[in-house]
Amino acid sequence: MGKDKNYFLNEKPEKMTYGGVFRKINDWARARSLWVVAYGTGCGSIELRPTFTSRFDAERLGMRMVGTPRQADVLIISGYLTVKTLKRVIRVYEQMQSPKYVVALGACPINGGMYYDSYNAINRLDLYLPVDVWITGCMPRPEAILAGFKRLQGLIDSGKADGWKKYIENLDWYRENQRKIIKNWRMPNYNW
């Protein structure tokens, strides 16, 4: 394999049959057991530490930090995303197993925030990844993050948090947007 080969993954992963008899129980359990991949992209990850430790204690909502994307349910985009980070974020997101949810913290992923005119911070995250819950603020305090997670739980409970399904359905559109800014994808292959 040449070093400069494009490793964009073009084949779609197979769709998951979602529903059936256990659908309600599944949604209930998914909403109450959110495992967050411990990956911080920007300044917002500093707010996640008090959220997950004794002061605000997100574990009482059933949330946990896990060290590997394979076991995680939630990817938190905590703050601004540069092009270099976006590559890694896409890779982490695609290695997570469905169903998976994305939560974006702060103003930067929404419209660029204070980095709207920066030469390497992206302006809108939802062009590249499907986002389920936005939490505004610069940065949002742990209370706001907890409120956002309560909202995500409500969405999952009612079956509306389906960003991962949209991502698979509209993969071409997302890939085209990602290709626009990531010119050269030199990374090992992985399955998802």
Binding site: S33, E59, R60, R70, Q97
Partner: peptide
Amino acid sequence: GPTIWQNFIDLWKLFRKKTAI
């Protein structure tokens, strides 16, 4: 802290997640 039944919920969730690896 979480409820003492948290591990049952985690187990069910994990069991019903997709596997593609």
